[in-house]
Design a protein around this nucleic acid. Structure first.
Lengths: 235, 235
DNA sequence: CAACTCGTCTTGTATATACAAGGAAATTAT
DNA sequence: ATAATTTCCTTGTATATACAAGACGAGTTG
């Protein structure tokens, strides 16, 4: 058997959608209808429908049927990778400079972002990530000490903060925002920017099962760093 | 039955991974082992393994077994949504201003990005998307005329270019880059920016099965627009 | 000693069957 | 006429079974 039956059924359905024969929210054949049309068992027809549902192409509802998913909210995805991996993948030299490792009292916005009491102690680190000795990104991170006691004792030359935290408080959720900002003077110094230039800023908050782990601000010069995304609509 | 058996098995596997009991690339129990451990049929054990594989938690290999996937390339994802939908979702008023609709001869960089001959005709549109009458994003788009003949005849007040193209040349692939830039003077005028401010620029190239469809440049003021991403590590 | 075969374990595909549960429409009872 | 019930079609879960196909090691053969 060259092409599995469930794959043939998937193709059949996708062709009908791509040709426009079946529009958004149209009903597609039920498991039983496919069973008799293709002379397969219900489980095989079902597999085709389930896999297309997992892929976001169809939606199913018990008792009602299976429908072509609406593409309205079709959104494209961008990846945010670990900066150290990215640099190494370019065959460049990666290094980092640790500027700050301290325990501070949380002012209101930090406390709120970390979900802790205002004025309680939190850890703060500032690290510059370099590509071929040139600053590429500044990482300012606030960490909830309850979830990473030994944070300040780590040597982040060998393991990035993100890697360390992933190991010690397994991530369950992350939220990001990306924006374009003008760096302040301190940031310009950290990034070695003589002429002001726009920077890409990523704010990342990460959760583990026990609560908010950390709150990071990643700033990179617009001329040296960009985010990439690649999206294929699986056939 | 409150919690389905296949879901219980999934939880069992995930707990072992999250607790660190099973490390990256470790082998997990085979279908047959789970079958006897949980007193279920092989198909039920199989379902748990397959769903975790689809979710990227496990990898499977015929003849070898099932393994904990490596999180090395763990990357976070950001969404780029349709701007019109986003504005409407905020309960704001959406409108757009069409500045340019023309057919031009492609200079080299445009021709290359679209995969057409240099100096051949391509369509170009420039549209400003407004939120509550304030410019939010400038969309400059170059379109391959072979794949969207009637592009210039469209009324983009009712249907955004992205929606039109999605309908006429179903997307198979898209690539994005995001960067922080300083807008030039023309862009400042389009965006109504009196004081220069950094902008977020998204470059999007889209493919259909017949080739490259279009090449778009989306520019938004850093103070008014940001990209958001939400990632949950499914339990 | 190398190459081959065979048996066994693994995942992959496919079927037939059974019952559960949700939704909607037709039927029945009030 | 309205409300409750039944009935049917849908998807959801679960099992037992069969054979195919890839990987790998043990043993056999040259």
């Amino acid at each position: 058997m060259s092409v599995p039956k469930f794959a043939q059924i998937k193709e059949f359905i996708l062709e009908n959608i791509q040709s426009g024969e079946w529009q958004e929210n149209d009903r597609v054949p039920s498991e039983n209808e496919l069973t008799s049309q293709f002379q397969v068992s219900r489980m095989t027809a079902r597999r085709a429908l389930c896999e297309l549902t997992d892929a976001g192409i169809l939606t199913r509802s018990q008792g009602q049927g299976t429908f072509v998913a609406s593409f309205k909210s079709q959104s494209s995805l961008l990846e945010i990778k670990n900066i150290a991996d990215e640099v190494k993948a370019r065959n460049s030299d990666y290094s980092c400079t640790i500027l700050v490792m301290e325990s501070i009292r949380a002012i209101a916005p930090i406390a709120i972002a970390l979900g802790v009491e205002v004025d309680s102690h939190v850890y703060r680190s500032v690290i510059v990530h370099n590509e071929n000795e040139q600053p590429l990104q500044v990482e300012e991170r606030f960490v909830n000490p309850a979830l990473a006691k030994d944070y300040l004792q780590q040597d982040f030359h060998s393991l990035t903060p993100h890697e360390y935290l992933s190991l010690n408080a397994p991530l369950t959720e992350a939220r990001h925002t990306v924006e374009a900002i003008m760096p302040n003077q301190e940031m310009c110094e950290w990034l070695n920017l003589y002429n002001e230039e726009p920077c890409l800023q990523v704010i990342r908050r990460t959760w583990s099962s026990q609560g908010i782990v950390s709150f990071a601000r990643l700033v990179s010069p617009g001329s040296k760093y960009r985010l990439g995304g690649h999206l294929t609509f699986k056939k």
